[in-house]
Design a protein around this nucleic acid. Sequence first.
DNA 1: TGAAATCAGAGTAAAAAAGTCCGATTTATC
DNA 2: GATAAATCGGACTTTTTTACTCTGATTTCA
Lengths: 143, 143
Amino acid sequence: MQVTRAGEYAVIGLLYLARQPEGRTVMIDEISDAERIPKSFLAKIFQSLVKAGFVKSHRGAGGGFSLAKPPADVSLLQIFRAVESAFALQKCVSAEPECVVSHDRLGSCALCGVYAEAQGRVNEVFARTTLQSLLRTSPVAVN
Amino acid sequence: MQVTRAGEYAVIGLLYLARQPEGRTVMIDEISDAERIPKSFLAKIFQSLVKAGFVKSHRGAGGGFSLAKPPADVSLLQIFRAVESAFALQKCVSAEPECVVSHDRLGSCALCGVYAEAQGRVNEVFARTTLQSLLRTSPVAVN
DNA sequence: TGAAATCAGAGTAAAAAAGTCCGATTTATC
DNA sequence: GATAAATCGGACTTTTTTACTCTGATTTCA
């Protein structure tokens, strides 16, 4: 039950973009160097972020990435959903619900109800946390 | 981010015990047959449950397992903690905290705070759900 | 036209989850 | 006391997921 590296890196990468001056595009290399994230892996993650509409890509020479939305409009929940393969406590509360094992032998899956409630709580926290709110509490490193 | 099979099976196994008449001990074979859980795997999980003090084991002929505590005194959170290897949204909110990647480069790890809050919500839900409360909503299968 | 960048997706490696096996130990019963 | 029935304990294997790499194609600025 862990948020994976992909989600982690996505947030870090987006925060890096959010800290740039208006209009600047940055390349994967710069972010991966600065944040010590494997370049190829980050590139792949950014592809998902482009598809999900969180960042704009600028191809060709002088290209790179930039935020596509104001930081206040991007929540952790949205990011994780775009990047994590299965962001759910259990299959029965995932995008493709399916009760494991003998869940289904119990009258009306008692466990699924509990999972759903827990999942709801997590989602609520991640939904109200935006890039903007993270920016306020995480200043640029001061090396 | 999923509750694993081990946690799932543990709950199902404990519920099975909870449904038995007072004083009856049941063998792994019976539970694994009834709930279609791999026998060896369930046996292994039950060892953890014995260590954690949730079930009593009775060795030798005529032995088996029985609940060691009233169902109302056993919460999902306790079960998961006994059986899941790492029941935490992220390492920084786990038993052995450790910030991944460049978490630590940010002033005071903004993400860790969010994870901690989300984890707290999940724990709260699982802490107040006991075997007793699950029993009420999950009648014995009626094959 | 060519260098610099992303795109797309297949492929690989490492780690965790899921499940198996077997010999040792305990204990009720004959 | 012997034996059969059960758990104990842990090493082992398999499968799945996570994490990461590679490469060739495409786009675009200069």
